[in-house]
Design a binder for these strands. Structure first.
Lengths: 375, 375
DNA sequence: TTGTAGGCGTTATCAG
DNA sequence: CTGATAACGCCTACAA
């Protein structure tokens, strides 16, 4: 018999097993049932002395209830599963913060999964998540048309719901589930009108591939806001949905020559901010030589120079609404969040144009002019 | 007998229960054991015909294995639990992205929990997390001295580790666990030397309450980098660890008068960026009227004007390292990540001073000068 | 108030 | 290769 066999060494390397309720019960000198009741159940019907005895035993052993076992025994969990495309993107992290806050208030724990750009991975993640039997699954991020996973995703979520789960989608309309949408179309249209009102006439739009629903909605919304005004067709520049995408698009625009463009609308703020930096790098001063506007109103819009004109969407609120929707009884009605135009210094007024649209365009460069989008 | 009783209606509102392995087995006409093997076990030893039969049955029923049940039966999970203070902070979301990437490569799923500013909540979260029996727990964020939860947290993590779990901390030294640290002290010292080299002599430091370890380390590091140089004691301004904190500190500094300050070191980038905006709002131009430097090198540093001088820390890499540490066998050695000074336009050289320190300070305003911190 | 026993969905062991 | 059956850790009637 060697030293390895005497029980002191731990050949498996796994360490001592975590103490179970049985251990606690034995340590406290009561039955498992009593221990269970004392720790997690309605401790009404257990003698006070035993309660403390059990609590002390649990503390002494460092006992933590095995949540999986509880989940199995009780048939339900207290978790919310959140699927995002990218944690590092302020758009998603703001939503996540809202979801987390609301979940916490409801005594639920949020677990977050990152899908990346791949719809296949998103589908796979939803599948896996389903296995954890969360109370709620929230999926955020634009649907991508033609990815071929749409039906499969719907099936997966539908089955989950049939089994008693709550599904809420953020920023994905047209799917048969509770939905929190952002008024991409209306917000962009309102922005277009506001820019017309500020004297801009000739635009470029930096957009992502139209398969990306959010990008397309914002692009189309912008065009529809221009409709009726006597302006040339905006120049459309397709690029990535990221800061780098915006940077590249701006670089290309400068190379091409931008004499026919007075202002750029980038379909999100990180693109717009990347574009501003690219313009600056090329010696083109945003706000003076060219107007720039974005969408989302992320925190950085106030720290760049000039401050970025954008469309504010209540991201944090979207997270809260999603949880509210998930927890509400009855058929969840789609919630639409308003988008608000915020004119800042990146699109100063151009008074040398005839203003035949809009009135009251005065305090440019100030925050929160009340151009709420319709709807 | 009413319509409510015929089984079509669902009085509980819970919907149909999720199909179990039993259902699949029955549907496929095999035993549960075979079904289990066909779906999740080593399917080597099950007839091909039965495998397809089971697979089809599972698909038909929309079956998803109950992960909690698997966890219980197998005695282990494939998840990594990550604790952060704030998802919306780019510092944490970069780390989270790194952790997620590495975990995914190892076939693990990351669940993220948000602790907020409260150490008590952090402790409570670690407790709850422990109940889920993850393979790994990663805790990020600066320790807060004097919070009183330190010992309790250590106990909790120690017990978790004893039960076979892996613990890794990011950015918290002096705790008896695997640790990935950022060289806060050395990076700040290197920054101080670089600024001296650029001709700056009189500084202010915007820092958070010293109980916040990260803030204190960076502050002290900066002072130690100044040691030996013939410069006045930097003005210390205490404020919040956030953008707003930086904004406020700058506002106060301007109010007080900043004739005796040539450059400000804010202990993180969001503070520095907030400060730049405050300066600008007060008519003080950063980079011209006053130098500004931060710490972390978050993405926005390149988009603000002037671009922000900072100390780059490989946040994404920190996440990767943490997972590597967690998955490695044997005693996990502390990993220290280097911090690199990056001089940009927010601290242009001041050639009118005597340069008695540093050489080679040439290409100011360019990225990635190789001022790696010692250590 | 307490203990006994059965069950939750899955895997693993051990005969067939 | 397959099928009973005993775990896994916990909860909860039911009975004492």
């Amino acid at each position: 018999m060697t030293a390895m066999d005497d029980g002191l060494a731990d050949p498996t390397g796994a360490g001592a097993a975590a103490p179970t309720l049985h251990d606690v019960a034995r340590e406290a000198g009561v039955s498992v049932a009593t221990a269970s009741r004392a720790l997690n159940g309605s401790s009404r019907n257990v003698r006070a002395e035993n309660v403390t005895r059990v609590r002390e035993a649990a503390a002494r052993l460092g006992y933590q209830p095995h949540l999986s076992a509880q989940a199995i025994a009780k048939g339900s969990t207290r978790t919310v599963a959140l699927v995002v495309r990218d944690v590092a993107d302020p758009y998603f992290s703001s939503i996540a913060a809202g979801v987390t806050q609301a979940a916490e208030a409801a005594g639920l724990i949020v677990t977050m999964a990152v899908a990346g750009d791949s719809p296949e991975r998103e589908l796979q993640i939803v599948r896996t998540l389903r296995g954890r039997r969360p109370r709620v699954i929230i999926v955020t991020g634009s649907r991508i048309d033609g990815a071929g996973t749409r039906e499969a995703l719907i099936d997966e979520l539908r089955e989950y719901r049939t089994a008693g789960g709550r599904v809420v989608l953020i920023s994905q309309r047209d799917l048969p589930f509770g939905t929190v949408t952002i008024d991409d179309h209306g917000g962009s249209a309102a922005l277009a009108r506001a820019l017309l009102g500020a004297g801009y006439r000739r635009f470029a739009v930096f957009h992502a591939p139209p398969a990306l629903r959010t990008s397309r909605d914002r692009h189309e919304g912008f065009l529809s806001g221009l409709a009726g005004a006597d302006v040339p067709e905006p120049l459309a520049v397709e690029t990535g949905f990221t800061r780098t995408g915006g940077y590249e698009a701006a670089r290309r625009l400068v190379e091409r020559g931008f004499e026919d463009v007075e202002a750029v609308f980038a379909v999100n703020d990180v693109m717009a901010i990347g574009a501003m930096t690219a313009f600056r790098d090329a010696g083109v001063i945003p706000g003076r030589d060219i107007g720039v506007a974005g969408f989302d109103d992320i925190a950085s819009t106030r720290d760049v120079v000039p401050a970025l004109t954008t469309v504010a969407v209540p991201l944090h609120e979207a997270g809260l609404s999603a949880m509210r929707l998930a927890l509400s009884d009855g058929e969840p009605l789609p919630t639409a969040l308003p988008a608000t135009v915020v004119l800042r210094a990146s699109t100063p007024p151009r008074p040398h144009h005839d203003l035949k649209v809009m009135r009251g365009v005065t305090a440019m460069g100030h925050d929160h002019l009340p151009w709420t989008s319709r709807h």
